[in-house]
């Protein structure tokens, strides 16, 4: 059994580089090693999906990448600079959309706040907010409060806020896990559209295998915790994706199948420890 860490080199120049990241949480009941050793590069303008079983450290990794939390060892480099705190060029869309919008601010105020804090001039702020709300289809509710909106709409506000911020790197943590299927399909297409229009780099975390293959140019599959990379897979699908057509293409079905099998392997307990054990067994020691 090989470990399949192919280390797909990104096209073009490297923007984000995750180098040997390990994360050990210290808890009252002792240390918990969530992530063992993750290394991969994201090229400028790439769209990569990160899949892995529940508890495999996807959120942990995003928090380390976004500078919210230091890695226990290893480092993350953005644009040549090692990250030691939230960098300017990054936006993170959280899974818990209901808790990531400021309930005391209206929709437009939520979207404009990061721009205000960053000192963007007023006229430009307005233009960017209007454009972002237009893109997510929420131009009609700028004066509503987040809690007056449905779950899908709230997540769209969070996405609009990230878009208006114009990040170089957009990190998304299972952003559509709690929205209904139809809204989810719309939001998936929205994210791909924004990615193409703005030319940003996207790292999209999901536990949905179909979604990862449909969205990404590349799918990084994680083992279970303590986590290593199980496989780094390039997705060979046309750039123009369509909910019905793409999903019924033989290539799609085949790659989806492949990712599914890998996830099953991870769920059966494949992790850093079992991987090294099987390597030892294979070498006959």
């Amino acid at each position: 059994m090989s470990t399949d860490v192919t280390g797909t080199t990104p096209k073009g120049e490297v923007l984000l580089s995750v180098q040997g990241v390990q994360k050990v949480y210290s808890t009252p009941t002792g240390p918990v090693e969530a992530v063992r050793d993750l290394t991969f590069d994201l090229g400028k303008g790439e769209f990569a999906c990160l899949v892995g079983p529940s508890g495999s450290g996807k959120t942990t990794l995003l928090k380390v990448i976004s500078g919210l939390m230091p890695a226990t060892s290893g480092r993350v480099v953005l644009d040549g600079k090692t990250i030691d705190g939230p960098p300017r060029g990054m936006a993170l869309v959280f899974q818990e959309y209901g808790r990531s919008l400021y309930p005391w601010m209206r929709v437009a105020e939520n979207v404009v706040l990061p721009l205000r804090a960053a000192g963007v001039p007023k006229a430009e702020r307005r233009a960017r907010v209007d454009e972002a709300l237009e893109q997510v289809g929420l131009a009609h509710v700028p004066k509503s409060y987040p809690w007056q909106l449905s779950g899908g709409m709230q997540q769209r506000v969070a996405i609009a806020r990230a878009i208006a911020y114009r990040p170089e790197v957009l990190l998304m943590d299972e952003p559509f896990a709690a929205v209904d299927a139809q809204t989810r399909a719309d939001l998936e297409d929205l994210v791909r559209k924004v990615w193409k229009e703005l030319g940003i780099t996207v790292l999209f975390v999901t536990h949905d295998i179909d979604e990862s293959v449909y969205l990404g140019e590349r799918v990084i599959i994680l083992s279970s915790s303590p986590t290593i990379i199980l496989e780094d897979l390039r997705i060979d699908l046309p750039a123009e994706r369509d909910q019905l057509e793409t999903r019924s293409m033989p290539e799609f079905v085949e790659q989806r199948h492949h990712v599914y099998e890998q996830i099953q392997k991870a769920k059966r307990g494949y992790n850093a420890d079992t991987a090294s054990m099987s390597a030892v067994a294979a070498s006959g020691v």
């Binding site: 976004s66 990054m90 990531s100």
Partner: peptide, 29 residues
């Protein structure tokens, strides 16, 4: 204060006075 909202505030680079004014104070109100 909510930890997700606190992380959101951090990722959008709000520190010091901006953080108090836009996040901590209203959240604690």
């Amino acid at each position: 204060v909510d930890s997700v909202l606190a992380d959101t505030t951090s990722t959008y680079g709000m520190q010091g006075w901006a953080r108090f004014r836009w996040f901590v104070f209203p959240a604690a109100l």
